[in-house]
Design a protein around this nucleic acid. Structure first.
Length: 690
DNA sequence: ACCGGTTTTATTTTT
DNA sequence: TAAAACCGGT
């Protein structure tokens, strides 16, 4: 029953056993850091620490789920390990904001705005300021706004974006509060402010969480570090685990310097280096090391492995992006057929979501099961967002972003004029558009009757969506409002129509499922303080904080995802695709239709791109295939491409180079592939889908 | 206010 | 290329 520490190496053991005081663990890729965290938690429990006193923070919801699973398994299930809190920073913040919503002046069912909603709000504010919203890229403004609030890297002050954002900031925050809504940053900033003001409250939380662990520490921002510092208090039982070489969220305010800051905030903290890599074969590790070594100013690390060298890395040049995808498809079939690597052990990684398309097509054509993680999710679809906005507006009509989105969708005779007048009235009276609608529709001329109907509709469903049976109410709402017809409109092909309707239906299905699960959970008692509220508002908060689709990774399929999504994961076989200048390293708007040369302006964060490449390479355990296209379809046009500069850093002896522009592959290989393909076709038929 | 057709414009990564 | 923004007729 006792935790077996003998399977850990000395450094890992030290990181596990050093339970008290601040600890900084610098864990190279594949050095077993998840393992260390899990062991550390279970070790704490064995020392007699109550499970409820342990808080482990991860970067993604998926990582949190996996970590919890691992802890429970390691603890042997017998103990109360389930009560350990494992969550993302944002989910943790959500819990606090929810528990303290009254002190924060928020309604019980406050909304959480996602990036799209934030953009809508900023656009509205710009128009209020009579600023031409075409002059500014709203997303860039949002980035600056976020950095201003969370205190990330100081921007180049003085330029017009900084000035505009500075002017926007107070209005933005007032707007949020008037709507009774919060954004992602608020989930960190509101607790931070609350704790700063209310010492007794802070002490309560400090008493609740006495042991803190943070994974992916290199990707935290200043607000997160501040929150951690508050919680750690004088006890200072804070253990952070990170790797400066894997810091890939600089654009979100994370700083590599964060690791150094920890040493500053917690002088004399224990420092532990995990340098033995247990994941990748020697060749893969050597190549990845060669790439990352060229980054200046990193904490010197020398990752090593005692595993064999393994096969060489493969470097493939395909004539086009389609050919690249076809090659990957063929190779996946070959590898899974010949080397008996199952599809779930294979990943196709790329820099941008847009690259997924050709791979999806090729894999579908080849009959290979795949799963696209991230990217345009269900909740990025317009029709789904409309429905979500309906639900939100009905639940909380002060949620103006949601209300304005659907007030005239489908068209119901409440047009721009009416809405603009209502907004003006609202501003003059210091109330909200909803209040104007509800209180005095007569003042809004001919549309009065329409508005009254709309108000009645919202009230009706606002009542029905609150308690039990909300999923059924949502379905009725879709029917009554005619959202299916609305979805069908504006899609030219029948297939597109079907997809849209299907998307709406799938959200409704999810709602039903969610409600059933919640009832079940309520039946088996769980007094755990969930981060999320009960009912529909909890569901809505959950989906904006965790938009990954519910369908698990249970079935055997190849994984397609971005490099960012791949952090923390591993596969036996990894395809790292699009190894081209402009793509990896990515250069924002740096390359145009005419050429492939990235513009030599500072917009390209080469160091972070290099780390991204490193992260991708180190995901592979046994086989790593790097691919690039010589020519790529970009925005409908053929564009020539040049190889990524990162490829030059990999020693040639580690590489096996294949040029698909050369002579056709030998016949036997073709035969094998055909065989494999029919094998998969029959497998899929057996599994009974499509 | 609404609709349909035309033109423009965007293209990183995600909690 | 595809989706959003725009425009002008009804």
């Amino acid at each position: 029953m006792a935790l077996d520490l003998s399977l850990l190496n000395p450094q890992q053991r030290k990181a596990v056993v050093q339970s008290e005081g601040p600890v900084l663990v610098l864990a190279g890729a594949g050095s077993g850091k998840t393992r260390v965290i899990a062991h550390r938690v279970v070790h704490l429990l064995e020392q007699g620490v109550a499970a409820g006193a342990v808080l482990a923070v991860t970067f993604t919801n998926k990582a949190a789920a996996e970590m919890k699973e691992r802890i429970v398994r390691l603890a042997g299930g017998a103990s109360d390990a389930r009560r350990v809190t494992v969550s993302t920073f944002h989910a943790f913040g959500m819990r606090i904001v929810r528990e303290q919503h009254q002190a924060l002046g928020l309604p019980a069912k406050f909304a959480v705005l996602d990036a799209g909603d934030q953009a809508a709000l900023v656009k509205r504010l710009l128009r209020d300021l009579k600023v031409d919203d075409k002059r500014f890229d709203v997303n860039r403004l949002l980035g600056i706004l976020s950095r201003l609030r969370t205190g990330g890297a100081p921007g180049h002050s003085g330029d017009e974006y900084e000035l505009c954002a500075a002017e926007l900031l107070p209005k933005y925050q007032l707007g949020l509060r008037a709507m009774g809504a919060v954004d992602f940053d608020d989930l960190l900033l509101l607790p931070l402010a609350l704790f700063g003001k209310d010492t007794a409250l802070l002490q309560k939380y400090q008493g609740r969480y006495r042991y803190l662990l943070v994974d992916e520490y290199q990707d935290t921002n200043d607000a997160q570090l501040a929150l951690l510092t508050q919680l750690a208090g004088l006890r200072r039982n804070l253990c952070v685990v990170g790797d400066d070489d894997q810091s890939i969220y600089g654009w979100r305010g994370a700083q590599v310097r964060q690791i150094l800051k920890f040493e500053g905030k917690f002088p004399g903290c224990a420092q532990i280096f995990l340098e033995q890599n247990y994941r990748s074969s020697g060749n893969i590790l050597a190549a990845a090391n060669a790439v990352i070594a060229r980054n200046p100013g990193r904490k010197p690390k020398s990752l090593w492995t005692d595993r064999g060298r393994g096969p060489r890395l493969r470097l493939v040049a395909a004539p086009s992006d389609e050919a690249e995808a076809r090659y990957v498809m063929d190779e996946i079939i070959r590898v899974s057929y010949e080397e008996k690597i199952s599809l779930r052990e294979i990943a196709v990684l790329y820099r941008t979501n847009a690259q997924a398309r050709p791979f999806e097509e090729a894999l579908r054509l080849g009959g290979v099961r795949y799963r696209v993680v991230g990217g345009t999710s269900l909740f990025d679809r317009k029709e789904v967002r409309d429905l979500v906005a309906y639900l939100r507006a009905a639940l909380n009509p002060r949620d103006e972003v949601a209300l304005l989105r659907i007030v005239n969708v489908p068209a119901r005779g409440i047009g721009d004029q009416t809405v603009a007048r209502a907004q003006e009235l609202a501003r003059a009276r210091k109330s909200t558009v909803w209040d104007v609608f509800a209180a005095a529709p007569a003042e809004l001329s001919q549309a009065a009757e329409r508005i009254a109907d709309f108000v009645a509709l919202m009230r009706k469903y606002g009542a029905r969506l609150v308690g039990k049976g909300f999923s059924e109410a949502a379905r009725d709402l879709v029917e009554e409002v005619g959202l299916f017809d609305e979805a069908r409109r504006g899609a030219q092909s029948l297939a597109a129509q079907a997809r849209k309707v299907e998307a709406v239906q799938s959200l409704l299905r999810q709602l039903i499922e969610y409600e059933q699960r919640e009832e079940q959970r309520a039946a088996e008692d769980t007094e755990d303080s969930e981060p999320f509220a009960a009912g529909l508002s909890g569901y809505l908060a959950r989906i904006t904080l965790d938009s990954r689709e519910a369908d698990g990774d249970s079935w055997d399929a190849v994984t397609l995802m971005t490099l960012h999504g791949a952090k923390g994961l591993e596969w036996r076989c990894v395809f790292l695709c699009g190894m081209e200048e402009g793509l990896l390293p990515h250069s924002g708007r740096g390359f145009d239709d005419s050429g492939s040369e990235p513009r030599a302006d500072g917009a390209l964060d080469l160091e972070e791109e290099r780390r991204l490449c490193y992260v991708g390479m180190t995901r592979a355990r046994e086989r790593l295939i790097l691919t690039r296209a010589v020519e790529r379809t970009k925005r409908g046009k053929r564009v020539p491409r040049t190889p990524s500069r990162f490829l030059e850093d990999i020693p040639a002896e580690l590489l096996e180079t294949i040029d698909l522009r050369g002579p056709l592959p030998a016949a036997p290989k073709e035969v094998q592939q055909a065989k494999a393909r029919s094998f998969f076709a029959s497998m899929n038929e057996l599994l009974g889908e499509e």
